[in-house]
Design a protein around this nucleic acid. Structure first.
Lengths: 177, 177
DNA sequence: GTCTATATGGGGATAGAC
DNA sequence: GTCTATCCCCATATAGAC
């Protein structure tokens, strides 16, 4: 699964062959089909893996004292991944974008993961006393997805660092109000 | 070319076969190869088409009196395409994202188009007297790409309408300062 | 320049030995 | 449960008639 998630991120789902994943995981091709009966099922499992990773991340962030710190730590994590983002884009955003062009129903699963992130962010803004918490959550996640696309297209990690700094002070402005 | 740009947008480059495009353009498959010697060349031509469309759009916007109107009209155009964006994402952003996962050098051509949009927006903010025009241009384009990803993933055109409204007042705030 | 028929390669999927 | 060999479809690309 780790190999699949990584290779899907780096090459995209469509360009990735099951042989690519088998090689990355250092197992023979036939074995892949023992655990996943088709490529679609493997992609579905990759989406689930993203859901689990997100759950683990927000779980860790929830241990921080205040909502503003949690949000800023989330942003810091994104900025920390800027080199990867410059090469391959957001690991989940590019996957969701790709799934939206497919016939299978996996775009629905991707939407659930995106909503889980929005829900978590909304909860943080609500704890900061904002009645427009959902809109702020959309702003935050959209800002991340947008800077990921630009960082990736322009191959410029500094762009994500600059935008991350902007988000940091934006969160401070909301929290200090 | 029109058929190719449309089908690439709707299905993605990787999922699209040249037979798909030939059918959409109502020409036999063989003819495609008379005008484009490979699929790569066709994709390259599609990127060029996006460059030309962007040039035509900014050319029209440039005829408006003030920079703020031009920027708001740009946003209005995006919002006007929100149903398409909900189904297939940003026509250019999803293409650029896909090209970033390919081996060919077309990601460079995509970056040029993205930079052309950033340059145009930067020029508008500069005309509004902002010394941080480039950063504002990045904010604007990133906001658009981000709301496109969310609108697409969540299949919700209203999200783009709401974000468009936010951008409109953001531009007003900058222009009225 | 238009169109049909087809060659070629590669990727998803399976059979079956071990 | 692991691994090799292979089937089969289909997409890119070409040949060549018209």
């Amino acid at each position: 699964m780790d190999a699949a998630v990584r290779v899907f991120h780096e090459q995209g789902v469509e360009k990735t062959t099951l042989a690519d994943i088998a090689r990355a995981a250092d197992v023979p091709l036939g074995n892949v089909y023992y655990y996943f009966k088709s490529k679609d099922r493997l992609v579905e499992a990759a989406v689930d893996a993203h859901r689990d990773r997100l759950g683990a991340l927000t779980g860790r962030l929830d241990e921080l004292a205040d909502p503003a710190s949690r949000l800023k730590e989330l942003v810091a994590g994104w900025v920390g991944q800027r080199e990867t983002a410059a090469r391959f884009g957001c690991p989940f955003g590019t996957l969701a974008t790709e799934l939206d062009k497919r016939d299978d129903g996996l775009d629905v699963a991707a939407a659930k993961v995106m909503r889980a992130l929005l829900d978590w962010a909304e909860s943080q803004f609500a704890q900061l006393g904002r009645s427009d918490a959902r809109a702020l959550a959309v702003d935050l996640v959209a800002a991340y997805q947008g800077m990921s696309v630009l960082t990736n297209t322009l191959r410029d990690p500094d762009l994500m660092a600059a935008q991350g700094e902007r988000l940091r002070s934006w969160i401070d402005g909301i929290a200090g109000r």
